[in-house]
Design a protein around this nucleic acid. Structure first.
Lengths: 228, 228
DNA sequence: ATAAATACGTTGTATTTCCAACGAAAGGAA
DNA sequence: TTCCTTTCGTTGGAAATACAACGTATTTAT
């Protein structure tokens, strides 16, 4: 069991937790460790969950099977990532996705209701975990909110400009690197890659942006609202 | 001051908190009440915040001014709603929106770092608040995730079908009511209203859905993945 | 170094969406 | 009732997107 916990500090949920405290923490939260083979189902869509999962090792997929029987991959999770947290933390809720392993995996389940309750021992790491969980969910939230701003734009051009200007703002510079290649950027903005590529060319031709590979630059002299 | 807190139980963050405990709770969390006139700025974009706001009375707007100087309304908040929570709860963070009042408003600010810490009095409502906050943020998260599933579809037809089948699943029935009129649905799915209306008609003509006003029905005999 | 694979831009066509405008239907107010 | 407002569906033209296909550059593997 110990072997799994060598790098718990790389897991955002356990940031700032002493490794020596970790076992008692698990007891305190009644964490449950489960092992799965490849292609096993961890959670079924429709399950009512009050605990969330932490991927300790392996790899799992979160899948949505819709009304028409199509399977959509919602996300692919690597060690350190959570699933079900925003369902379990709102009281027992129906979980609308199916979680399956794509590699042999070890998963830690933590009961949400145990979390918020102050434990008898008033352990210091207890409040740390709560803060971490709040932080993880909040970060997730910010990511979704930000992405929403881009995707809700109607045209590819607007989506690109919204995305690029947000990156420029973050970098606090006209020029900046983006962490995506073209296909990934297209997926992120949910547009067609080739159409996006064409639109990028047009933006360049129009003198609004410059780019080369994943280095982009917003042209200052184009900063009028006409372009958006 | 008391006048503001007559219906704190309608505020999700304070669900389950006894009104009699409320004052000591505020002390415990060092909550700060602030009053604003109409059209005052509550938070400036770029502010570093470690506390979030609870709209007690009035009405406020959350606005994003982008790189090109355009103002986009992110959300309009009524009493009981929060802002800044997913920024403040991830440690002190730069807040990328501007918050302004559109009516005279009273806002309660709560420091996030005070929340997670167990207080000296080990008050019971403290853990209740944490659970509530987790619940609020989680619910927000679920809403964003769900909406994302619809909006990331490429065509209006797919967006509609994804949305409608999700509603059908929630209602656990082929027929169900939706809480939007056409314009609101179009805004939610971020498509053009008239184009959406046309697409709805086409879906009806194709025998895939039936609808009248805001009552919709998915036709069972059309449940093949060909339509999606 | 060579070959294979991947990433990227371009183009043309078929679809789809947007946008503006209009009329019909439904609902509310006087 | 009558008038006014809002909601909704429809249509047509302009614009944008998706999709498939292809050539080139760049990267990775052998």
């Amino acid at each position: 069991m110990d072997k799994y916990f060598n790098d718990i500090n790389h897991i955002p949920l356990f940031a700032g937790i002493e490794k020596s405290n970790f076992k008692s923490l698990l007891t305190c939260l009644s964490g449950k460790l489960e092992s799965y083979d490849k292609h096993q189902t961890v959670l079924f869509s429709g399950d009512i969950i009050s605990s969330f999962g932490v991927v300790i090792s392996g790899k799992v997929q979160v899948i949505q099977d819709d009304y028409y029987g199509n399977n959509n991959i919602i996300s692919i999770l690597s060690p350190g990532q959570l699933f079900g947290e925003s369902f379990a933390c709102g009281g027992p809720t129906i979980f609308p996705f199916t979680v399956t392993t794509t590699k042999p995996s070890v998963i830690l389940f933590i009961d949400c209701s145990k979390l918020a309750m102050p434990c008898r021992k008033a352990c210091s790491f207890h409040s740390q975990i709560i803060q971490n969980l709040l932080s993880v969910i909040s970060t997730n939230n910010r990511g979704l909110t930000e992405k929403m701003q881009f995707i809700t734009k109607r045209s590819t051009r607007e989506k690109l400009l919204a995305y690029l200007s947000a990156q420029a703002r973050k970098a606090d510079s006209h020029s900046f690197l983006i962490p995506f290649n073209r296909q990934e950027l297209a997926d992120y903005l949910s547009v067609d890659r080739s159409a996006m590529s064409a639109e990028l060319s047009k933006l360049k031709r129009d003198g609004i942006i410059k780019y080369r590979k994943n280095k982009f630059e917003l042209c200052v002299d184009s900063l009028s609202s006409d372009n958006v």
